[in-house]
Amino acid sequence: MQRRTLLLGLMGLGLAGCGLMGAPKAYRGPKVTQITVSKSRRKMWLMHNKRVLRRYNIGLGFAPEGHKKAEGDGRTPEGTYSIDRRNPNSAYHLSLGISYPNANDVAVAKAAGVEPGGDIFIHGRGPRFQRARGDWTWGCIAVTDREMTEIYSMVQTGTPIVILP
């Protein structure tokens, strides 16, 4: 009986610890006023005004050259957008939504007779893509799960994101 009680107690602690591992901690530093992404350099910076708070190596869409023009093209958008939603239940650990497509993206896609696509996020790898390297997403910006936990705690909805070629 004692052995069973001890085993159940240890299992409970283990499960409690698992829940806390990926949970974002409260960020108490300077406000992130902008996210800057350089597609050509595969870098992302969290900025407070002109000061770099954090920098990350990133993966992009599997066809990284050029601006996203159509659903399924594998490109990451270029331009100025904002973080418009937060997903704590993402299949890719955690994710922050990017406000693509904007009105111009929709107009360009409509003129070309295609759908602009959407659901572009900054996200982690999640359990299925832990070993993914390089540019592997459908147009999103990918970092490690550990980095995504940090980013998720620092970046608020409404934060501008500038994605450079």
Rank of each mutant, 00 (worst) to 15 (best):
P24I: 07
V108F: 06
P165E: 02
A142T: 03
V162C: 00
Y92T: 04
E150A: 04
G61F: 07
I35V: 13
I35N: 03
V143C: 01
M11T: 00
G61A: 06
P116L: 07
T33W: 11
A70M: 10
L53T: 07
K68C: 06
M44I: 13
A26P: 11
P165R: 10
G158P: 01
G19C: 14
C140N: 05
H123Q: 08
T5C: 12
G97A: 13
K110Y: 00
V155W: 01
V162Y: 02
F121K: 06
R51H: 13
R28S: 15
T159A: 00
G29D: 09
D105Y: 09
F62Y: 14
G134T: 05
C18Y: 15
D73R: 04
H123G: 01
A107R: 15
T157L: 00
P77E: 08
V143Q: 01
R128G: 15
V143I: 02
R131M: 14
P127S: 12
K31D: 02
A109P: 02
R131W: 14
Q2H: 14
A142I: 06
R4C: 00
Y27A: 04
R75Q: 07
T36S: 15
R3M: 12
N104C: 10
L53G: 08
D145Q: 01
G66Q: 12
I98P: 00
I161S: 04
G19R: 14
R128L: 15
V162A: 05
Q130K: 13
T149E: 04
P30D: 14
A63V: 11
V52N: 10
S40E: 10
R75V: 06
M11F: 12
G97W: 00
D84A: 06
F121T: 07
A111P: 10
P101K: 07
S82L: 14
L53N: 09
R28A: 15
I151K: 01
A23G: 11
E71M: 12
Y100H: 04
G117W: 02
G126S: 12
F121E: 04
R55D: 14
M44C: 11
S90G: 09
D119C: 10
L10A: 09
E65W: 15
I83R: 04
E78N: 05
H93V: 02
G118T: 05
W45H: 13
K69A: 08
G72P: 01
T159D: 03
D135P: 03
E65H: 15
E78L: 04
L8R: 09
P160A: 04
G17R: 12
N104W: 13
A16D: 08
G61T: 03
N87V: 02
A63W: 07
Y27I: 03
G29Q: 07
L13V: 13
L8E: 09
G113A: 06
A109N: 05
R4S: 02
K50R: 14
L8Q: 12
I151D: 03
P88M: 07
